[in-house]
Design a protein around this nucleic acid. Structure first.
Lengths: 249, 249
DNA sequence: CTCTTAATGTCGCTA
DNA sequence: TAGCGACGTTAAGAG
């Protein structure tokens, strides 16, 4: 069977039919249309008449893209359910209850894409990999540092890394894969405060990141917290993908 | 001229040609293809062979969508520049330097959409509207509350609303349009700490939100901060759109 | 389910 | 341009 079905200048009936076809065969629907959009749920919005691309995925994800920006102007998350009523395509989410209505003024084209995809993204340079690096080479923080826990729940939150320094002080690390800001410092402060209640004053807080904003540096200093420069490491490639390539033989 | 140009089973030359055509006419390109994706920039990623929808907008936004999730698996933000090299579609961003490469294994279809859209989203139920409500009816916080500043920069951050209560205490409000969590409390705490340095102990911090998580409630209590329940208001409709409808006449 | 936090977050605003 | 914070944030992971 063909991977992509295209219908130009579809009628409302065509749209209905192809949406049903896509649902049955787990296809992705793309509609190129002049439309108006109404949304009500966590918030409420209206979008006047204009040309947009509408994508409906087999998992219920619903995207409406204007000709600018990375973000969809309106959307519905996975798990939503779509139906057609007259010239409206409606998507409903329950919990929280949200309704998205697309009023089709004129449909220029519609496609159904029977996409097969078994691959997952393999990404490197994340905060999780900074943590891994620190457990493998604790000296990147400082000589004598001993990491003990990762993602450890404490009184008010979950600390990235909890450990002990060479003098027996409790050390909390807050990791950031990019330049750390005021939020990061507040977060670290919250953990240090909570741990001081438990362990007394011998608690150190270290913000670990490639750099700091000026505001963060000032607040960090005021709060008696520390900074350690560390770049998120980037692996050479291949993580989740299966390693059975030709090299295997 | 036609709004949507469709080419099925395009060659690499077709793709190149239509991308150039789209760039010239500010069209949105959509490619339905089996592909592999490589990204390197702030992080680095690889995605093995599979069927995806690729969208390239006239502002340089670049989206690659798998058949699941609301989020693109790979992307490039507005301002990026696209080019074709052999069977690869490459998008470059400078500052930070980021490169996205899509290796087209098989293109099933490509469309160029000459989308015209002059409308902007009108949204209600935002935090900004909560602030507006509080300035119009300060009593929704408490009797005698006087809001003084909105988005006021202080020592370590920018407070949502700064005001005075009936007893002359300085009051900081931190607004959240949805259930407030630990982050919101830490943020409020940061503001209160900074203001206490300036105004002494007569500083109150109030978290204003429709609800609180358990953890947030506990921390708020421990820190001597307060909570005021308030839902973000939803207007009846029409904000940014021009009011020139039939009713006008 | 709720809670907590990361994210190539993106986006808008402001000094 | 950098800093700061909201977002209908989304998504993942743990309890």
């Amino acid at each position: 069977m063909r991977k992509v079905i295209v219908r130009e200048k579809p009628t409302v009936e065509d749209v209905k039919e192809l949406l049903e076809f896509a649902e049955k065969h787990n296809g992705m629907v793309t509609i190129f249309a002049r439309c108006r959009v109404y949304y009500e749920g966590r918030a409420k919005s209206e979008l006047g008449e204009g040309d947009r691309i509408i994508i409906i995925k087999p998992d219920g994800s619903f995207l409406i893209h204007q000709n600018k920006k990375r973000e969809p102007v309106n959307w519905q998350p996975p798990g939503s359910v779509v139906r057609v009523e007259g010239n409206k395509v409606i998507s409903i989410r329950r919990k929280p209850r949200e309704k998205l209505e697309v009023e089709l003024i004129e449909s220029y084209a519609i496609t159904v894409f029977l996409a097969e995809d078994y691959e997952e993204l393999s990404l490197t340079g994340s905060e999780a990999e900074m943590a891994k690096l620190i457990f493998e080479k604790p000296e990147v923080i400082e000589e004598g540092f001993k990491p003990m826990f990762k993602e450890k729940p404490i009184k008010h939150g979950i600390v990235d890394i909890l450990g002990i320094d060479r003098e027996g002080n409790v050390v909390v690390l807050e990791l950031k894969r990019r330049r750390a800001d005021l939020h990061a410092v507040s977060q670290l402060k919250r953990y240090v405060d909570a741990l001081k209640e438990e362990y007394g004053e011998r608690v150190r807080g270290i913000l670990v990141a490639p750099s700091l904003t000026e505001g963060a540096r000032k607040l960090l200093e005021k709060e008696g917290l520390e900074f350690k420069k560390l770049e998120p490491p980037k692996r050479e490639s291949r993580k989740k993908s299966k390693q059975r390539t030709l090299d295997f033989f």
